[in-house]
Design a protein around this nucleic acid. Structure first.
Lengths: 156, 156
DNA sequence: TATTGTTATACTCTATAACTATA
DNA sequence: TATAGTTATAGAGTATAACAATA
């Protein structure tokens, strides 16, 4: 960590290099998403959950309950990925697959009573980890960031 | 797609459900990052590149050239992941591993002439795909989004 | 003793294609 | 014919632990 005379220090070098990518919005979004997912996974580990299954459980815990197709659309995942996620939650007793009275092909995913309680606990942990990750932003900046991300993601 | 009488349509259901997660900044960042990476990968496919190796190549194409350790830090990846990425770029002739005169343990990753040209082409494609993904945002909003993401990611 | 790069391994996530039962 | 869910598979990304060379 000792710089030779006349040579830029490691901090300067890093600053100069990162300038190349740090104006890349997508790259930064990936970085924030990865850090946030890492933090959420750590927080949810206490409940035996991970971020991905949690996002399914959260949607299955409130009306109107989603079909698997709707879960796939809202989470931007392939329907085939939803199968494994719902399987895991169902095996753990957190959700059930109920028949859709309007269409016998589709299945409605509904959280059980235990699943609903777990979802509430998990939501609190996730919110806390998110506050941690976004700690350097003011409340106003966090809101603005959320608005811009939602517009970018939802609009397309 | 035909709703029964007295039942909310699919669009309404989706709106009500997504409200649960769409105020989650990390979730939105993951979604934008995934969409942006997908778009970048499609764009870079024409050059036989992908987003991850491109990010390494981009950093190796401009001074000050990074050591592998610095690449790991700036890309928020584990040093062991950098090995495989640099291996691939080196095998393709896009970068070389040069000895660090100041520390014989570390290796400086430098783009070759061909690698530098490729990086420039790739940067243009990535920028175009990014413009596409962020199309719904105004130029001012894009800048503000970048500023907030950089602050959130860099500060912690 | 600590750090850089490396190897190895296991797990999660992503991307597709094909199949079934219903519509 | 088209859609919801399912199965299967291959490849990319993530997370750790341990090792040799060097500081």
């Amino acid at each position: 960590m000792v710089s030779s005379a006349g040579v830029r220090g490691a901090a300067d070098r890093a600053a100069a290099q990162s300038a190349k990518l740090d104006d890349d919005v997508v790259f930064l979004a990936v970085k924030l998403g990865a850090a946030g997912t890492r933090a959420a996974n750590e927080a949810l580990d206490a409940l035996g959950l991970r971020a991905r299954p949690y996002s399914v459980l959260a949607l299955a815990a409130v009306e109107p309950y989603p079909t698997q197709r709707e879960l796939a659309e809202q989470l931007a995942l392939d329907p085939s990925q939803i199968v494994a996620l719902v399987d895991g939650l169902q095996d753990a007793g957190h959700v059930t697959r109920d028949p859709d009275p309007a269409d016998r092909r589709s299945k409605i995913v509904v959280a059980t009573t235990a699943g609903r309680a777990l979802a509430a606990e998990a939501a609190a942990l996730v919110a806390a980890s998110e506050r941690d990750v976004l700690g350097v932003l003011s409340a106003r900046e966090r809101l603005e960031l959320g608005r811009l991300l939602a517009k970018a993601v939802g609009g397309a």
